[in-house]
């Protein structure tokens, strides 16, 4: 599979897929999509890059160990659930704020950070599995 064509097209495809995954993640609350799908797309992107350019290159590119990224995602998701303790409402109650950023009202919510957490867990864990399995090819 390690062909020249794949090596050439892999970087742009990966980049495109990563951007698309973020898009899918963010629109998930209102349209089909969300953290899972986004995460799966991003993980596939990394897997493709890994097949084309080797696992080492991916590991270098994402800097953190995939499992650490997944851990961060879980941490973020859980903390999103615990934020509501400060508002005096039960666990995982969705809290929304609308700070004005350069005049534009930006909705921020714990459910969104939760979904981002989901995204990171899926990216980290699935990419981790894929890279581990691909890594075997080089043994």
């Amino acid at each position: 599979m390690n062909t020249v064509i794949l090596r050439t097209v892999a970087p742009p495809i990966t980049a495109l897929m990563l951007v698309f995954s973020v898009f899918v993640l963010l629109r998930g609350h209102n349209e089909p999509g969300g953290g899972f799908i986004g995460g799966l797309i991003a993980a596939s992107a990394l897997a493709i890059y890994g097949i084309a350019h080797g696992v080492a290159a991916v590991r270098l590119a994402i800097r953190f160990h995939p499992m650490a990224i997944a851990g961060f995602g879980l941490l973020l998701a859980t903390l999103s659930g615990f934020v509501s303790i400060f508002a005096g409402v039960p666990f995982m109650t969705g809290l929304w704020i609308y700070p004005s950023l350069f005049g534009v009202e930006v909705p921020l919510a714990t459910v969104i950070s939760f979904d981002i957490g989901v995204y990171f867990v899926v990216v980290g864990a699935i990419a981790g599995i894929a890279l581990t399995l691909e890594g075997r090819e080089e043994d």
């Binding site: 499992m67 851990g71 941490l75 903390l79 039960p90 666990f91």
Partner: peptide, 20 residues
């Protein structure tokens, strides 16, 4: 009723981040 579960998940996540 939530805290024990949440605590374990949080610690699991943190341990995962400092795995090495």
């Amino acid at each position: 009723v939530i805290a024990p579960i949440g605590l374990m998940i949080l610690l699991g996540a943190v341990l995962m981040m400092v795995r090495h």
